[in-house]
């Protein structure tokens, strides 16, 4: 059964692993960006984003091209009636295929993530704290750190560390499940892609922030930490944000008044922070230079009135805890789907 699985799978495996090898070779030959970078060269920048895109795509590709056809290909060609009538039970047939192809999927995603995470290490390091305790460095170094997303941010979290492994396993088994339920390769591929994309979009916003209760900090708004001020055309403050801890994933940035209620900052703040530009709706980032003094006065008045900024965030040092939890969730889902596949292949498909 192992031989047959390999014999049927080797072309697909060669295609994906071949592309991975090419990508890894390019990254290794190009070399990592220098550590402490502030700006990426255009070539490095392309590789940086290509790494993100490919790592996001690989699980989807595995689900669509390895998972979905695994069973439907047999059903459409009728060969399931050949192979299920050898002296091997359907359950064993399914289990072997799931296990071997699933391992290949997991290994492919793991290797890709390893290479990409290694290559992007210096870039990611530029936006995460090394030894500074979280919270102590609020507001420092904002302009440079913002150049790159933190590895815990939604953009990078799914393409660093071990989460791609969980995604690949899930996408693969999802494809197989869709194939068993729909029995048509093309529709199974489409459904796999749609469901997987939906899960990929839903998880960072609906699940990941709440897996570990987010941390909160209430800080005084200063000219050093204010990072965003949005004013609408009638002069009301629409948006006011301060910089979160370095490398953290900021989930919420709210202004609270002296009693702790969430409020919008009074509109005179807009007037004194952005004096003669009412026509410009969007604010500016990180005030600096001579304006800062006048701004500081204005912000001190705001602080004296009891206004504070409350930042809700996942600190950078929770990266591995969140990675482990999310990977475990996806692996558990994969195991559940695999179990359903085994049940259905025994009882429902003919």
């Amino acid at each position: 059964m192992i031989w047959l699985t390999w014999r049927q799978f080797r072309a697909q495996a060669a295609a994906v692993y071949g592309l991975l090898a090419v990508l890894a070779a390019i990254l290794v030959i190009a070399g990592r960006p220098l550590s402490g970078v502030v700006r990426l060269t255009p070539a490095d920048s392309r590789l940086y984003y290509a790494g993100i895109v490919v790592t996001y795509l690989l699980p989807a590709v595995i689900g669509v091209f390895w998972g979905a056809p695994l069973v439907t290909r047999e059903l459409e060609a009728g060969t399931h009636r050949l192979v299920w009538n050898q002296s091997v039970t359907r359950a064993r047939w399914m289990a072997t295929k799931l296990a071997l192809t699933g391992l290949a999927a997991v290994a492919a995603a793991g290797l890709l993530s390893l290479v990409v995470t290694w290559w992007a290490g210096p870039v990611d390091a530029a936006s995460q704290p090394s030894t500074v305790p979280v919270g102590a460095d609020i507001g420092t170094d904002v302009p440079d750190a913002e150049s790159f997303a933190a590895r815990i941010s939604p953009l990078l979290f799914g393409v660093r560390g071990i989460t791609p492994v969980g995604y690949a396993a899930f996408a693969f088994v999802l494809g197989v499940t869709a194939g068993i339920l729909l029995r048509r390769t093309v529709s199974a591929m489409a459904v796999t892609l749609a469901v997987f994309a939906a899960v990929q979009i839903a998880v960072p916003f609906a699940v990941r922030p709440y897996v570990i209760p987010a941390a909160q900090q209430t800080v005084t708004i200063t000219s050093a930490n204010i990072s965003k001020l949005g004013v609408n055309s009638s002069g009301e403050v629409e948006e006011l944000a301060v910089a979160g801890p370095r490398g953290a994933w900021v989930l919420g940035n709210e202004t609270v008044d002296a009693t702790g209620r969430v409020v919008t900052a009074p509109s005179w703040v807009a007037a004194c922070l952005l004096p003669p530009m009412p026509s410009e709706p969007q604010g500016r980032a990180s005030p600096s230079g001579p304006v800062a003094e006048a701004d500081q006065e204005c912000l001190t008045k705001l602080a004296d009135l009891g206004y504070r900024q409350r930042v809700t965030y996942q600190p950078a040092d929770r990266f591995w805890a969140l990675q482990g939890t999310e990977t475990a969730i996806f692996l558990a889902l994969s195991a559940l789907l695999a179990w359903l596949c085994l049940r259905w292949i025994r009882n429902r498909v003919s």
Binding site: G78, T79, L82, N85
Partner: peptide, 15 residues
């Protein structure tokens, strides 16, 4: 399964 051989309709084989 070992006791019963089955040649299905249209004699499927792996192309």
């Amino acid at each position: 399964l070992a006791k019963v051989g089955f040649v299905a309709q249209d004699t499927p084989t792996y192309a």
